[in-house]
Write a protein that binds this DNA or RNA. Structure first.
Lengths: 121, 121
DNA sequence: CCGTGGTTACAGAATAGTGCGTAATTTACA
DNA sequence: TGTAAATTACGCACTATTCTGTAACCACGG
């Protein structure tokens, strides 16, 4: 994945939203503030390390806000920023699109999918 | 990327849209029918192998239609299916969101991003 | 010792790129 | 006239790069 300085907003947006976790984290955070360990419990298949990395990526992108409370036992909260909140309905729309078009997309996996053959003229 | 049979439409949608190319291909295909070599020219950094794989993925997902014309020199057309067309405005909305929230996301890369410190109560 | 949030080191898995081969027809050129 | 080369859309094998997981460690109060 080279940089290629895309200048295309779609490509840039996808750079941070791509992958399995970003949208899931958005999904869980839309209900409100969560802590690191909450998010781990929400989806137990993400590794400790990756969760930290993904959260950091979203934080740097300005989608998630990280709030570290001083003192011990160490406590950190995560919630969505204003842009993050604005993103949620778009993600939801994507989910709706997937469901609404399910019949039409006709996940015909075993056959040759959508391919059609046309005789040469 | 394990399977985990998500049952979450967002996760499933992201499984096919994740990565650098799917949205880009959508972008180029929204103008109309394109051939394999056209798409290669549109974004020269994608390798032929990956382009073929990505197109096949979108085809199986029912977003792109592949039309192979019989005879040589082999000719194949790609265009969007109805679900694919419906997806385009959502992708565009994502790009708009990225642009519109640019100031607010404040890409403060060098500093500690959004992190804030709060004194313990 | 435990739990919290996080980082680093190393290993293994997944993904991407490179180059070669293929098919039938047209064109190129000695 | 004969044959070599180009064309198109890939598939395959091999390598390079990148990503992800595991485990260990840190800080500290309880």
């Amino acid at each position: 994945m080279k940089d290629v300085v895309s200048s295309c907003p779609i490509e840039e947006a996808m750079r941070v939203l791509s992958g399995r976790w970003p949208t899931l984290l958005l999904y869980y955070l839309k209900d409100g503030t969560k802590r690191f360990s909450d998010l781990r419990r929400d989806n137990p298949t993400v590794s400790h390390r990756i969760l930290a990395l993904e959260l950091r990526k979203l934080e740097v992108a300005g989608i998630v806000r990280r709030t570290a409370h001083a003192g011990y036992p160490l406590r950190v909260d995560y919630d969505l920023t204003a842009p993050g909140l604005k993103l949620v309905p778009l993600i939801d729309a994507l989910g709706d699109w997937w469901e609404d078009t399910e019949d039409d997309r006709a996940g015909r996996v075993s056959s040759s999918a959508e391919t059609r053959l046309v005789a040469a003229e």
